[in-house]
């Protein structure tokens, strides 16, 4: 090792625990063993390091500092605990507010049955069942009249109208209009959309001892729908108007 390198490493050498590693310290020490000038510099650097280290550490710690630190920390911990408590209380209040707002919103958005509306609907159904049924059908995007059954050429008699509603068939809701004859027979008119929801080709005319089912493909304004008439009694005649002037004809 040359003097120049030795001088460089002497600047970096720590004289209390060397970090330079043996690949530097061994050649450095070998050089210092044979170079009086560098060795003198090394001794001077060591001496300076020791003196500086000693002076650096000569700081007296004030009496009572430990106790003051403990007191300071205790105060700080109290503050932190209070802040945590305030934060938790704030979060709780916020959560309660949110729940309250949520409940209020839920409560306000729930549908409210209106007795007057119910009365009005029933009154309309009673006074003008054909109009009532027509509005209901239109509301569900269906032709607002029922077709005349094949071979009868007469409309349904709405004075015999009992109800219109949805009935579950094979898991699907199907609109149905119900009539009851003066003799107590019942006729139901099911309305199927020809939109592929049902396989309507499978529908056939059926008959039991006192119940019948007839299928009719809609035409004209009823195109795109399949109507199924299910009724008790001999035929549909008791459910139809006597004249072909409309559903309001009397029996």
């Amino acid at each position: 090792m040359e003097c120049r390198d030795a001088q460089f490493y002497l600047r970096l050498r720590r004289h209390t625990g060397d970090e330079l590693g043996p690949d530097v310290t061994v050649p450095l020490d070998n050089h210092l063993a044979v170079c009086a000038t560098c060795a003198a510099d090394n001794r001077a650097a060591s001496s300076f390091d020791r003196a500086l280290c000693s002076a650096m550490k000569a700081v007296s710690v004030p009496a009572g500092l430990r106790e003051r630190l403990f007191a300071h920390v205790a105060g700080k911990q109290g503050t932190i605990r209070r802040h945590k408590m305030y934060r938790a209380a704030g979060a709780l209040v916020a959560a309660l507010l949110l729940v309250g707002i949520g409940l209020g919103w839920f409560s306000n958005t729930r549908p409210k049955p209106d007795a007057f509306e119910l009365v009005e609907n029933l009154d309309e159904q009673w006074r003008d069942p054909e109009l009532s049924t027509g509005r209901w059908l239109a509301k569900h995007k269906l032709p607002n009249t029922l077709p005349q059954p094949l071979n009868y050429n007469r409309p349904f008699n709405y004075r015999l109208h009992v109800n219109h509603a949805f009935e579950e068939i094979k898991g699907r809701q199907v609109p149905v209009v119900v009539f009851r004859s003066p003799d107590g027979d019942i006729a139901k008119v099911y309305i199927f959309r020809n939109d592929g929801t049902f396989d309507l080709k499978a529908l056939r005319e059926e008959q039991l001892s006192n119940a019948h089912a007839e299928k009719m493909d809609g035409e004209g304004e009823h195109r795109g729908f399949t109507y199924v008439f299910v009724y008790t009694g001999r035929d549909l005649t008791p459910f139809l108007a006597r004249t072909n002037t409309g559903g309001s004809a009397t029996t």
Binding site: A45, A51, L52, S54, A55
Partner: peptide
């Protein structure tokens, strides 16, 4: 530098 550094005044 002196090889024997005296104490440094803190």
């Amino acid at each position: 530098a002196d090889e024997t550094m005296p104490e440094i005044d803190p």
